[in-house]
């Protein structure tokens, strides 16, 4: 694990950039634990101050120090992304392994359902969901429903990984030696599937955090919890751009763009690293 990171860090520029950015953002978000202000409070500081030594990112029209506000926002968004990704992994792994292992008619049925979930436009459904729940909406509930809707793409990737594993020698040996299908799936395939599960998890985080921004700007997230999306929402509510308080909206956009690019580069470089062709060259066939 450590040596993999070291290897990638030394030899892949994308990974190096992503690694530094993400570590930086994690440090930034953990500053929230030392914040002098409560995440929900407002009018702690003078409003509409432009960025300065005292207020790194300026202050908002609601009298909040945007720097400290953002530490909470990034932390919540990251936690939201991770919990959605973890929850959806449960379904993806289950569906992907079953479909890939069973094959035949069961695989066909599962994949038809899977493909339906891939193509259904999810945003209108999430809007409906959030609209129904209104005030009872919480970030965790949102991440639960997004996990239920956003597992399909990754299940497909996991399935194709299992299909290629099935062709290999050791599965056949295991089948001939009389192992039951479930133990085979768990013991023989999961270790090989884990890297791709991890890579898709990062991709899923990108997806869910991006959608949270979309929902929040419509006022359809838990707008009282600071996240990247809700920060933009409140800035829009106060017409930040028209009023010239550009830093209120520039801060979340800049930090989140950095975070998204960092996560994507991490995904891309991991994906290449676990690609069977690269792996063959790496291990030396």
């Amino acid at each position: 694990m450590i040596s993999t990171i070291k290897n990638l860090y030394e030899h892949d520029r994308r990974f190096r950039f992503a690694f530094i950015v993400i570590i930086g953002i994690i440090i930034f978000s953990s500053l929230s634990f030392f914040s002098p202000y409560d995440p929900d409070s407002s009018y702690d500081v003078p409003s509409d101050q432009s960025p300065s030594i005292k207020y790194f990112f300026g202050t908002s029209s609601r009298g909040q120090d945007i720097f400290w506000k953002m530490t909470f926002a990034i932390r919540n968004s990251l936690l939201f992304g991770i919990s959605t990704a973890l929850l959806s992994r449960i379904i993806s792994i289950l569906v992907g392994l079953t479909a890939g292992y069973k094959g035949g008619i069961g695989d066909r049925i599962l994949m038809s359902i899977n493909d339906s979930f891939i193509v259904i436009p999810i945003l209108p459904l999430l809007i409906l969901f959030n609209f129904i729940f209104q005030e009872k909406m919480s970030l965790f509930l949102l991440s639960l429903i997004m996990a239920c809707l956003g597992w399909a793409w990754d299940a497909r990737l996991i399935r194709s990984q299992v299909l290629s594993l099935k062709e290999r020698e050791f599965t056949r040996t295991a089948v001939y030696s009389g192992m039951k299908s479930l133990p085979i799936t768990l013991k023989e395939h999961l270790p090989f599937v884990m890297p791709i599960v991890f890579a898709t998890m990062i991709n899923n985080m990108l997806w869910s955090m991006g959608l949270e921004v979309s929902l929040a700007v419509l006022g359809l997230s838990d707008i009282n919890t600071p996240t990247i999306g809700t920060t933009i929402y409140w800035a829009n509510q106060h017409q930040a751009l028209v009023a010239g308080v550009w830093w209120w909206i520039a801060a979340p956009i800049a930090i989140s763009t950095l975070l998204f690019i960092g996560l994507y580069l991490l995904f891309a470089s991991l994906n290449q690293y676990i690609d069977p062709r690269t792996r063959l060259l790496r291990m030396g066939g």
């Binding site: 290897n7 990638l8 030899h11 060259l281 790496r282 030396g284």
Partner: peptide, 9 residues
């Protein structure tokens, strides 16, 4: 001659 992630072969 390959050089993948620093592994030269």
């Amino acid at each position: 001659m390959t050089d993948v992630y620093g592994t030269k072969r």
